[in-house]
């Protein structure tokens, strides 16, 4: 990404920080409820120096990546299966539709009972939250393939399998990528939710622990780190996609999740 495109977002964030600082300076805000940027920065550097920040971040990051990968590994084959097979649709569609309607956070109590409060429960919540955007995006992409392109394959004498791998799946990529981006964002949200409720490590835990100790500066520091990592991971995903599929770059700009 060229440096010039980073200019505007940087300016926006700098302005927000400036207003935040001025508001504290002028006494408009309570220093306990909204600590000044400098206080939050100090908390951040303390956390970084003690190694706590890195520890919590790495634990959260690992959970997100694992859960996200699990979601994708489940969603892709299922999407292909349900697109290709009517019986599979008849059986699985109502079930999946039902699960989709239930917010993952509502399932946390159940997941704690079933999976305990360890890693399995965190992964479960992330998978529940991030499965559907990938699954539905890929299915939508497969369903939306231009029948005119399929005719090109039929005329060329391609087998059903070749039509699937050489026409249908590449056609579905743009919508899949949108699904992946949304999923990654949902993974972060769900993870922090899970860590807030029952955890002994991770950024969500760091926040709730700080709240209990009345350290709003650490709460804010945690929020900043989560937001920054979210932005960064989306950027990395987009760069990877643009590099792997240059023809997709136009679609990516339109697909802000």
């Amino acid at each position: 990404m060229p440096a010039r495109r980073l200019l505007a977002p940087t300016a926006v964030f700098a302005s927000v920080a400036l207003i935040w600082w001025l508001a504290g300076r002028a006494g408009w805000t309570n220093a306990y409820l909204l600590p000044a940027p400098s206080t939050v920065a100090a908390a951040l550097s303390d956390l970084a120096a003690s190694g706590a920040l890195l520890k919590h971040t790495l634990i959260s990051l690992q959970r997100v990546l694992l859960g996200f990968a699990l979601s994708v590994a489940l969603a892709l084959p299922l999407a292909v299966l349900l697109s290709a097979s009517r019986p599979a649709r008849v059986v699985l569609d109502p079930l999946l539709e039902f699960v989709r309607q239930v917010p993952p956070l509502a399932l946390i109590p159940l997941l704690i009972l079933w999976l305990g409060i360890g890693e399995a429960q965190k992964l479960g919540i992330i998978v529940l939250a991030s499965f559907f955007p990938v699954f539905l995006g890929f299915r939508g992409g497969i369903a939306g393939v231009d029948p005119k392109l399929i005719e090109v394959g039929r005329v060329a004498g391609l087998t059903r399998r070749d039509i699937l791998t050489r026409i249908v799946l590449p056609s579905a990529l743009p919508e899949l990528v949108v699904g992946l981006r949304i999923s990654l964002g949902y993974s972060w949200r769900a993870l922090v939710g899970a860590e807030l409720i029952a955890s002994s490590a991770g950024l969500g835990y760091m926040i709730i622990d700080a709240e209990n100790l009345a350290r709003t500066d650490i709460v804010l520091a945690g929020i900043l780190v989560i937001g920054a990592i979210g932005l960064l991971s989306d950027l990395v995903l987009r760069l990877a996609v643009t590099r792997a599929f240059p023809w997709l770059s136009a679609d990516l700009e339109a697909a802000r999740a």
Binding site: D146, E151, W247
Partner: peptide, 12 residues
């Protein structure tokens, strides 16, 4: 071999 009214190229 068929040439259609539209080009029908694979965009990727």
């Amino acid at each position: 071999g068929v040439v259609f009214q539209e080009a029908r190229l694979m965009p990727w």
